[in-house]
Nucleic acid binder design. Structure first.
Lengths: 207, 207
DNA sequence: TCGCGCTTGTGAATTCGTTCACAAACTAGC
DNA sequence: GCTAGTTTGTGAACGAATTCACAAGCGCGA
């Protein structure tokens, strides 16, 4: 398959969100123009994005909302449940554990991990907190698909190495550190500090 | 000034982090090659990124760590304190309020806001929670530079409109919604759901 | 002081992503 | 069935970002 740009996938996520909204409102069809307006892009961009995966629309009419919804869910791999573990049961880990958006889209949190003995054993927002020492054996047994790292930067790389070695192929990193992984492992980062610095830059360098 | 790409600014943030680390370790100089290796990019990219802002290196030698640190902080506008308000005192707002990275880099959280009367008045991680109804008058008085939105998607656009109208020019949005603002307002988004869907896509479409 | 090894800074070339523009395909009305 | 009015799908043009490649500058040792 032709390599798909990251920016394209991100936009597909955005379109998906609008389509869910349109479906709720009972709309039958939607045009690329409409999707573009809501998503802050152009109609040509919307059509090009979708064209990488097939022809989903009808000329003169637009896209069927339920059909495009199904297609996008299929493309994004949301037709199944993904098993997620959260590593780090601090404030960020807790905020993630209770986040409803996870479950809604098929991301099932199966466990959280921490080194702190006070936290281990207790539930965190309905999720069982386990000892970090069990990480490898648990991964071998439970076969989670995705690991979310909500730990301090210092040991983020070390923990990434551990989950990768245990067989995890997808990681979402909340630590403000640049992590390195083998090519067959996808690592996405959510870096608040970086976004804030981007705002600082924008505020400073306005013409 | 020539328009600087967003990707460039993000990389500057990454370089800054490494330089801080290098300074701690007492290293005097660093080469573009070294920065590139750690940052997962190429040396040419590093040099080009920096060249937009001036010549900071010495040929044959590399970059002076303290000099480049100062230059990057200057470029990113981190030479001053930025005043930040957090809108939404839920789990995410709380996680943000206690996040040390903010303070460390000169982002000072001056207040949090919520509509829930149970939360208003109480401190949240050392930050005062105020009534959302005061938002406009407080902004006029306290003149915060940045608003962080940690609220549900449904009213994210409405709250954005309010802070923009009150004079805020930089917003960090944690709600999984596509927000629209005037051109002179910079909105950055941290969208967990989108990142997860990116992982789902990567796991699904591996060749 | 000269030459060698190293590293920057930057035009040029290239790659990648977005926008343009239009033929093709569809609906609806007559 | 024909025409007018839409909207898709997609090559081609464009623009932006990355990579290449090399001259210029610096330090060091002879």
């Amino acid at each position: 398959m032709k390599r798909i740009a990251d920016s394209t996938v991100r936009r597909l996520s955005i379109y998906l969100r609008f389509l869910e909204e349109f479906e709720e409102r009972g709309l039958a069809t939607v045009s690329s123009e409409e999707l573009a307006r809501r998503g802050g892009t152009t109609s040509a961009q919307v059509r090009k994005d979708l064209s990488f995966f097939g022809s989903f629309g009808k000329r003169g009419l637009g896209y069927s909302v339920p059909e495009l919804l199904t297609a996008l869910r299929e493309i994004l791999g949301l037709g199944r449940e993904w098993r997620v573990i959260i590593v780090g049961a601090g404030k960020i880990g807790a905020a993630l554990a209770q986040y409803r958006g996870f479950r809604q889209r098929g991301f099932q949190i199966i466990a959280a991990y921490d080194t702190n003995p006070e936290k281990v054993g207790r539930p965190l927002e309905g999720v069982q907190v386990r000892d970090m020492a069990q990480l490898e054996t648990d991964i071998a047994r439970d076969r989670p698909d995705i690991a979310v790292l909500a730990i301090p930067s210092d040991n983020a790389q070390a923990v990434l190495d551990r989950v990768v070695k245990a067989g995890i192929k997808a990681v979402l990193n909340f630590a403000p550190a640049q992590l390195h992984a083998p090519a067959d492992v996808t690592v996405k980062a959510v870096n608040m500090a970086m976004e804030l610095e981007g705002l600082s830059f924008a505020l400073t360098n306005r013409e």
